[in-house]
């Protein structure tokens, strides 16, 4: 082997081993950086500029326009909702992108409800809604908001047009008593 070839071989060995170490470091960091189940900020961060829609000003009465909401990240993948608007009315809702399963190797990092854990709560589980639907709701809201900016008048006044769900509170609140009207930040899910 000529000295040049030897040097070239050394260079390649060094280059690829450095590269693989780099990839491993990046991979480990990514694996470590999984969002926790109990904290909403990460799941509810929209990926920028995912929202797409028809060109403004092309709305014709009687036609149905489809508007895609922002994509929201959940611990399990992205969630994107779309609405179909016809004559200022939402006539359909779709969730075209459904999260995929993450590899089970990440399981240990998710320790359910870190938020509750951080508060020192002796609670092993919470019975109720799921993350996917929360992200779905946020994506839905962004689609409705976009429809409005495009000159669509959404005539129905459901609370899903509000944006309060997107701004997560600083920590989990634990009301001792459930009352109907004392929670200004809580969104009405129904009417």
């Amino acid at each position: 082997m000529t000295p040049f070839k030897k040097n070239l071989q050394r260079f390649f060995i060094l280059f690829f081993s450095t590269l693989s170490v780099g990839i491993i470091i990046v991979g480990v960091n990514r694996a470590k950086k999984v969002p926790t189940l109990g904290e909403a900020p990460t799941p509810l961060t929209p990926t920028p500029d995912q929202g797409t829609a028809g060109t403004p000003g092309t709305m014709v009465a009687g036609t149905t326009v489809s508007i895609t909401g922002k994509t929201y990240q959940t611990p399990y993948g992205n969630v994107t909702a779309a609405i179909q608007v016809k004559d200022g009315k939402v006539v359909g809702v779709t969730m075209p992108q459904v999260p995929n399963s993450p590899p089970s190797i990440y399981a240990e990092s998710y320790l359910v409800d870190q938020a509750i854990k951080a508060g020192g709560a002796n609670i092993q589980g919470v019975s109720g809604a799921t993350y996917t639907s929360l992200a779905f709701k946020s994506s839905l809201e962004s689609a409705i908001a976009q429809a409005k900016t495009q000159g669509q008048t959404i005539t129905t006044g459901t609370a899903s047009t509000g944006s309060s769900a997107v701004a997560p509170g600083p920590k989990p609140s634990v009301p001792l008593q459930y009352r109907g009207d004392d929670d200004d930040e809580g969104e009405e899910w129904d009417d």
Binding site: V126, S127, P168, P172, G186
Partner: peptide
């Protein structure tokens, strides 16, 4: 997804404490 099955006991033979989510705020329990 919020549906829970428990069998046996939690640590030290204690029962499982399960909270119920606030329907208006996913981060709160009632």
């Amino acid at each position: 997804g919020g549906d829970i099955l428990t069998r046996g006991t939690f640590e030290k033979g204690l029962p499982w404490n399960i909270a119920i989510q606030d329907p208006r705020n996913p981060r709160a329990i009632v």
